[in-house]
Lab assay of single mutants.
Amino acid sequence: KELVSALYDYQEKSPREVTMKKGDILTLLNSTNKDWWKVEVNGRQGFVPAAYVKKL
């Protein structure tokens, strides 16, 4: 599985998104959309802005 690192804090703005803190390591589930990537963090799945994470 592919991992990404959070470059910035992000506070979810809808139920489809997830909150992350800078430095968090997230499991990348889907990166086909260039703007929003689906990740899993702390057992929750949702979307984060692609520009806020980088692949490890």
Rank of each mutant, 00 (worst) to 15 (best):
L26C: 11
Y52G: 07
W37R: 01
N42I: 04
A6P: 02
L29S: 02
Y10M: 01
L7E: 06
L7R: 08
G46E: 01
R16K: 12
D24V: 05
S31L: 05
M20L: 09
K21D: 04
I25C: 07
E17G: 14
K21W: 10
V48R: 00
K1F: 14
K13W: 05
R16P: 05
V18S: 02
L26P: 01
K13F: 06
A51Q: 11
E12R: 15
I25H: 05
E12T: 09
D24A: 08
K38C: 14
L28S: 01
Y8T: 08
G43W: 03
L26Q: 00
E17I: 04
Y52Q: 05
G46Q: 01
V53K: 00
Y52S: 12
T32K: 12
S5N: 07
W36V: 03
L56V: 12
N30G: 07
G46D: 00
L7F: 04
E2C: 15
F47I: 07
S14Y: 07
V4H: 06
E12L: 08
T27M: 13
P15M: 09
N33W: 08
K55W: 09
G43H: 05
K1W: 14
D24T: 07
L28Q: 00
K22L: 06
P49E: 02
P49S: 02
K13C: 12
W36S: 02
G43R: 04
L26T: 01
E2Y: 13
W37M: 04
V48Q: 00
W36Y: 08
K21I: 09
V18I: 15
T27N: 08
W37C: 05
E12Y: 05
A50K: 07
V53D: 00
N30D: 15
N33F: 08
V41F: 15
S5W: 15
L26V: 08
S14A: 08
D9E: 05
E2T: 14
K21G: 05
N33H: 12
E2G: 10
V39L: 03
Y52C: 13
S31P: 06
T32A: 12
M20S: 01
L56D: 07
E17M: 06
P49F: 04
W37N: 01
S5F: 15
G43L: 05
F47L: 09
Q11F: 14
W36M: 06
R44H: 08
S31Y: 08
T27D: 04
